[in-house]
């Protein structure tokens, strides 16, 4: 299927030159890193000093959603870029991933697993404030549940429809509006009032989780090869 996509094989001489150049580059970089000695202390002291004001106990979540929340906002925007690029046209459904199998074992298993996955996802979202976890982990888990549901063919997601678009954009909208709204009180974008920081972070993360899960399900769906119904013959 993809044979025409592949680039031509480079001529042998060029391949050798390129390989040698890449090997040399790698060797030089390794030598530089080894000779440069230990890494600089980094920012753990700064993070530890301000952690109490961040609203969460997990330093990684504090960095992601408070100290460097601008990066995370833009990261959610990256997901929206890809969601818009792969979104099916309005009114068109995402291709049914697999034909309905009617496999009772599969359906029974999914009926059992999906509710558990949703609960674990919510737990991961919650626990991100204290321990490893957070919006992306929870979103990835929920997306897994979404993919499971969609491969049975019992439900179809129509990502072109308005509610689905709203879900895809929800994370970015909530994040941006919160970042701007806190500026009304504190005067600075992204500066959450210390007392409310924990709640605001959970609020943003919950919205981001939903959008991340929806985006990942959409991405999975857009990659499934289409069923070729029109095709007749072997």
């Amino acid at each position: 299927m993809f044979h025409k996509l592949d680039g031509a094989k480079l001529p042998l001489g060029l391949r050798l030159i390129c390989s040698a150049a890449i090997a040399a580059l790698t060797a030089v970089l390794i030598a530089i890193v080894i000779l440069s000695g230990p890494a600089a202390p980094g920012l753990q002291a700064e993070v530890a000093a301000q952690l109490a004001r961040s609203g969460v106990d997990n330093p990684v979540t504090a960095v992601l959603l408070n100290f460097r929340s601008y990066d995370t906002l833009l990261e959610v925007a990256v997901l929206l870029v890809v969601a818009v690029a792969t979104m099916p046209a309005p009114g068109r459904r995402l291709r049914p991933a697999l034909a309905p199998t009617g496999d009772m074992v599969l359906i029974g298993l999914i009926d059992l697993v999906v509710p558990v996955v949703v609960v674990v996802g919510a737990y991961l979202l919650w626990v991100g404030a204290y321990a490893p976890g957070g919006a992306f982990q929870a979103g990835a888990l929920l997306a897994g549940a979404g993919v499971l549901v969609s491969i049975t063919g019992r439900f179809q997601f129509s990502f072109g429809a308005l509610p689905a678009r709203a879900i895809l954009a929800l994370g970015l909208l909530t994040f941006t509006v919160t970042a701007a709204a806190v500026a009304l009180q504190t005067g600075v974008f992204f500066q959450y009032p210390t007392a409310a920081a924990g709640v605001l972070i959970l609020f943003i993360e919950a919205a981001a989780t939903i959008s991340i899960a929806a985006t990942l399900v959409l991405l999975y769906g857009s990659l499934v090869p289409p069923a070729r119904e029109q095709e007749s013959g072997p």
Binding site: P90, L162, L168, A169, L172, T176, A179
Partner: peptide
């Protein structure tokens, strides 16, 4: 300054939502 980033971000969300 932050509005130079926030304004297009909100515009992007609005154009996703408007049919």
């Amino acid at each position: 300054l932050p509005w130079l980033v926030a304004l297009p971000l909100l515009a992007a969300v609005a154009t996703v939502l408007l049919q």
